[in-house]
Design a protein around this nucleic acid. Structure first.
Lengths: 339, 339
DNA sequence: TTGAAAGCGATACCAC
DNA sequence: GTGGTATCGCTTTCAA
C-alpha cells in the first residue's frame, strides 16, 4: 500500500565523511568510540557529526550487526492486569534502565495463548534482542522461546525452578511472614488469610509466609482460616463474607494483595464490623489504593520500580554474555490505620 | 563492546528463492501480496516460506523502505502518572490497534523537558514512523517535533487549537456537565467543585462543564465553591477541608477526577460528615479505585480503551496519507453510592 | 592508523 | 510476469 514517505531529514556517514575529509570507516570508528583514530581527525568527525545533526539509523545498524537495540516487554492482555497500577511502575523501572543503555522497550500487550500466537511469532523473528515477561500465564511458551534462542527474563518466580530462566522477584514469602507476624503480635488471636492464585508462585509463597509466621511464633495454623482467592477485589470480598460467617471470632486478615485487602475491608464493613477495631487487615503491594483508601491500608511494600530495573539489568547482563543469578528484592511493612 | 551474537535462526529470501526455484524479487512480490505472479509459483513460494519458517527481518525492510513499522508511545515519567491505572488501559488500546496492523509500539517513559532531551532526540532520529503522546506537559516540544516532520498524535486536547496537530480526547466538558447536573438534580443545593490542573485543557473543560450545568438549569455559580486542585488525592483533601470549613452548607462536590474524589471523601469523613448523606460526591474517570472504594464512587466513565484505540487509528490514518479529524469520545454517568 | 569494499536482508526500478 | 541488480546506512574484515 502506498503511503507518505518519512519526511524526517537524515544525515549519513557519507556526508560526515565528506565534511571531515575521512572515510566512512573512520566515521564509524569515531562514532563508536574506537580509540585508535588520530585525535584531530576524530575531533573533525565529531564536529562534522554534530554540525550536521547526525543521528544513527538503527535499522541500518541492526541489519549490519544483527542486534536491534530493542527489548520486548510482554504483558498479558487482561483488563485486570492492565488496570493494575503495579505494571505501570514496573514498566517505568524497566524503561529507565534500558533507555540509559540506549535500548528501547517494545511493548507487547498480548494474550500469548499458544506458541504460535502473533507475539510468540514476532519474538522468534529476531527483531528484538530479548524479551522481559511481566506475567507468566503460559510458562511453557516462555520456555519454548528461550529454547529457540531468545534471551528471556521473567518478572516473578517461575514454577519450574529447575529451568535456568533468569528471573527477578519480590521476596513474597518474607513479606507475607512480616504481614502475618504483625497481625499476630499486635493482639490478633484468629488471623485468617485470603490467598492469591495458588497456581502462581507468588500465591504459594505468600501463603507460605503466612504459615511461617505462625510457626516462628509457636502457633498452630487453622486451615479453615485459609481461603483461596484469585487476586481480585471481588473474590476477596466474597470469601471474607463466608469466612466471617463461619468464624465470627476472626480478628485479623492478611490479604495476599492490596486489591483483595480492599475487598476484605468491604466485606468486614458489610458485616457491620470495623477495621481495625474488630478486624485488622494487612495487604501486600502498597499501591495507591492502599494509600487513598479509608482507613489507610497497612501493607507490605514491594520495590516495584526496583523490580523493573532489576529485570532490565539482568537482561543487559545476559546480553553482555554474563549469567546473572535470580534477584529477590526485599519488602517492607508500611503501617497505616487498618492494622 | 563484544556481546553474544543473536542465536535465533533466520531464513532469508535467498533460501526461499532457491527452494521455490524463483528469484528473490519474486519472493518479495509474493510475500508482499503482489497479484501479478504466476499462481503456481506463488504457491511454491508460500510453501517454501512456511516450510522454512520464514519471518521478515524488519530492520532490513526498514532500511529499504524508510519505514520502521514502529510507533513511539511517549509518557511522562512522573510517579503520579505511572501509577495511574488509566495509562495502562490506554496503552492496551493503542497496542491492540497497532499490533493488528503489524506495527509495534515503542515505549518511551520520559521527562521530555527540553527539546534536546534524549527522547526528543530519538524521535527525530527517524527510527519510528510516528509518536503518540500520552500527556502533554511540554506542548511546544511536540510542536517542534511535528514541524521537523515527525508524525504526531496527542491524547488530550492541545492548548493551542489553531495548531493542526491531530488529537483524540474524552468529551470532558460534557462529562463534567453530566456529573454536576446529577448532583444539582438529585437534591444538592450547594455544589462545589475541585478542579484539576487549570493549565491543562482537561482541567479547563471539566470546570466549564460545571458551569454549563448550572447555566442550563438556570442556576448561578458561586465562585467561592470552586477550588483549584492538581489532580492529586492530597490536593483535593486539603482543598475540601478548607471548603467545608468556610461553607458548611456544601452538600455536593464534583471532583475533576477519581483520585481527587477519594481525597474529597477522605476530607468529608475527617470532618465527621457522611457520604452521600451529608455530602454527595461525583468523580471523573471511573478507574478501579472508584469501584473498590467504600462507598462506591459515582463517577463519569470515559472510554479509556477507546481513547488509546482512537489514537492509534488516527496515527495509522495519517500514515496512510489521510488527515483525520480530532476525535472526541463520549462519556457516561456511572451511579454508585457516593451520589 | 586508515581506506576500500564486501556484506546484512529486503525492496523496487528497469529490462526482458 | 519475471529476474537482475542497485540501493538503503552502517559495520567490519582485509590490505596497505
Amino acid at each position: 500500500m502506498p503511503v507518505t514517505s518519512p519526511s524526517i531529514f537524515r544525515t549519513t556517514y557519507a556526508e560526515i565523511a565528506a565534511k571531515a575529509g575521512v572515510s566512512r570507516a573512520t566515521v564509524s570508528r569515531v562514532l563508536n568510540g574506537d580509540d585508535r583514530v588520530n585525535t584531530e581527525r576524530a575531533q573533525a568527525v565529531m564536529d562534522a557529526a554534530s554540525k550536521l545533526g547526525y543521528r544513527t539509523n538503527r535499522a541500518a545498524r541492526a541489519l549490519s550487526t544483527g542486534r536491534t537495540g530493542q527489548i520486548a516487554v510482554v504483558i498479558d492482555d487482561s483488563p485486570s492486569v492492565l488496570s493494575d497500577p503495579f505494571w505501570g511502575v514496573v514498566l517505568a523501572g524497566i524503561s529507565r534502565v534500558l533507555m540509559a543503555n540506549d535500548i528501547h522497550p517494545v511493548l507487547m500487550v498480548s494474550p500469548l495463548e499458544s506458541e504460535d500466537s502473533p507475539i510468540a511469532n514476532y519474538l522468534e523473528g529476531g527483531d528484538v534482542d530479548g524479551a522481559i515477561f511481566l506475567t507468566v500465564h503460559k510458562e511453557d511458551v516462555v520456555h519454548q522461546l528461550a529454547q529457540k534462542g531468545l534471551t528471556v527474563v521473567v518478572i516473578g518466580t517461575p514454577t519450574d525452578l529447575k529451568s535456568d530462566i533468569v528471573y527477578v522477584d519480590t521476596d513474597n514469602r518474607a513479606g507475607a511472614e512480616l504481614a502475618t507476624k504483625h497481625l499476630l503480635t499486635s493482639g490478633c488471636k484468629e488471623v485468617a488469610t485470603i490467598t492469591g492464585d495458588i497456581s502462581a508462585v507468588a500465591g504459594i509463597d505468600r501463603l507460605e509466609g503466612y504459615h511461617a509466621a505462625h510457626l516462628s511464633l509457636g502457633l498452630e495454623v487453622n486451615e479453615e482460616l485459609i481461603a483461596h482467592g484469585d487476586w481480585s477485589f471481588e473474590s476477596a470480598k466474597t470469601l471474607t463474607l463466608r469466612l466471617l460467617a463461619r468464624h465470627p471470632d476472626i480478628d485479623g486478615i492478611f490479604a495476599a494483595n492490596d486489591a483483595m485487602a480492599l475487598g476484605v475491608m468491604a466485606a468486614v464493613y458489610e458485616r457491620g464490623r470495623l477495621v481495625p477495631d474488630h478486624v485488622a487487615v494487612v495487604g501486600f503491594d502498597d499501591n495507591i489504593m492502599a494509600q487513598t483508601h479509608r482507613p489507610g491500608l497497612t501493607t507490605i511494600r514491594q520495590d516495584i520500580l526496583g523490580l523493573g530495573a532489576a529485570a532490565a539489568e539482568s537482561m543487559l547482563s545476559i546480553l553482555q554474555g554474563e549469567t546473572p543469578a535470580p534477584k529477590i528484592l526485599p519488602t517492607e511493612l508500611i503501617l497505616r490505620e487498618s492494622a
